[in-house]
Design a binder for these strands. Structure first.
Lengths: 259, 259
DNA sequence: GAGTGGTCTAGACCACGAC
DNA sequence: TCGTGGTCTAGACCACTCC
């Protein structure tokens, strides 16, 4: 990583610094390696530390750097592709169910916003299943799956006996019934958000961390059966939406520039 | 917008400020309204301007505020839902084709990265169609649609005569042939990125603006026929992925918290 | 204790838009 | 010309990790 002069340019210093640093981490550092600390880099480039940090902020937002307090700034690994498309990925009982770890399930009367989103009367009982998605040993997403009681009520309960009934808890009970519910449609939206307190903690990130918020509406029997709000770490995740097409194209690193 | 004391709390000042400001813009301001300027807000809350700006940065990232140099800081409108799922939305000739405005089309030998992404030999001619997506009068996305010459060559050319031939240009020629190509599969990925120079200009945003990068692989006749890299403004867009399910659920504002 | 990134300050000047 | 947000500085102190 050379000293690299900062000649007078019409672009902001922090943006030029970003380019210089990007070239450096692409050519002179490998994944997981620690780059020089902020005070040294600032001195080397002849800028204030705050200006250098602005450049590092950009690269962190792009998922190219990871900063760890007390440790240093590391070159990040490429983002992991996380499939979210087919309903088997997210619906309880799906083929890749093991990716999701259920945390708990709370049942409460629906507040106005939630009731409206689910299309149920305010005050109807809604079960909310909290889950974590673990990919390659790392928690990459949290999810709140909201299901109205009136939907779950349609599914015949399976009576457990003896020890099995003892071990059963509320979360498992709701999940088991959802597994037997036929989902015949889903619709998604993706947008940028930030992780707040609890969410950030679950994702092992500080508050304000950028996340990709995925809102999924599951339909069953001609009505909205469930609403899932998932937040994925934007720094480490690339969401993939597969389709059962005729060919299975291999995922590649995104190409940003044409010629 | 009250003065609101900043009592000693374990959380950073800028994060607390964000909460206070968020409540204020939700309750005391309407969409498009200008909130007090940064110097006044900083004085009112008894913090440095840089600290206040950190809070505004967060809210801007969340799409709640828009800052305009020389004007002020405005309460942002809710994000617009932009459908990107069904292939009719993006493929030339689709039903909502009018959403995309073709800028130009350049043809050049594929560099290594692009060739690898398209699965063609390095140096093969690749057509790159640049397009802009306009939604509700605002440019919300730019796209580079890369198509290998070997794919376009399979489509029989339609001969134009007289004045029509004169008016035809390269972009239209490539697009007309793509319209006749049967797409039988597509696969997408979404991740967070930042807009660089030209891209940022097209989106009418400064460099470094966060964007949602959508990478789409189109399959045709058992091979990868085209690669589209689209960048959507993250501040104003919510990407929606519809599915031809049995019901058409109405999109709702995302609900982040359960109980 | 030493070194790292995270937060915060109190200024300064610039670029842009409205008047 | 004035007010706005955008950039930049040169410090300070804190929280965390490692030795």
């Amino acid at each position: 990583m050379g000293t690299a002069q900062l000649t007078a340019v019409p672009e902001p210093k922090y943006w030029h610094l970003r380019s210089v640093l990007l070239r450096a981490i692409d050519s002179e550092f490998s994944i997981g390696e620690v780059i020089p600390n902020e005070r040294e880099l600032a001195a080397r480039f002849g800028v204030a530390r705050a200006t250098l940090r602005q450049a590092l902020d950009q690269l962190e937002l792009e998922g190219r750097l990871v900063r760890r307090r007390g440790i240093g700034t590391l070159v990040a690994a490429p983002r992991v592709g996380v499939p979210v498309s087919r309903r088997e990925e997210g619906w309880p009982g799906g083929s890749r169910e093991q990716a999701w770890h259920t945390v708990d399930c709370v049942s409460a009367p629906a507040a106005e916003r939630l009731a409206q989103a689910l299309g149920v009367p305010v005050g109807e009982t809604v079960h909310t299943v909290r889950r974590l998605r673990v990919e390659q040993g790392q928690t990459v997403a949290t999810e709140s799956l909201h299901v109205p009681e009136s939907v779950v009520a349609q599914v015949p309960e399976i009576r457990l006996s003896g020890a099995a009934a003892e071990a059963d808890d509320h979360a498992r009970s709701v999940l088991r019934r959802l597994e037997r519910l036929t989902v015949d449609g889903e619709s998604r939206a993706v947008e940028l958000g930030v992780a707040e307190a609890e969410e950030a903690t679950l994702l092992q990130r500080p508050p304000g961390t950028p996340v990709l918020v995925v809102t999924t509406q599951y339909a069953s029997g001609g009505r909205l059966a469930a609403l899932a709000v998932s937040t994925y770490r934007a720094d480490t995740c690339r969401l993939t939406f597969g389709e059962t097409g005729l060919v299975e194209v291999t995922p590649v690193a995104p190409v940003r520039t044409a010629s």
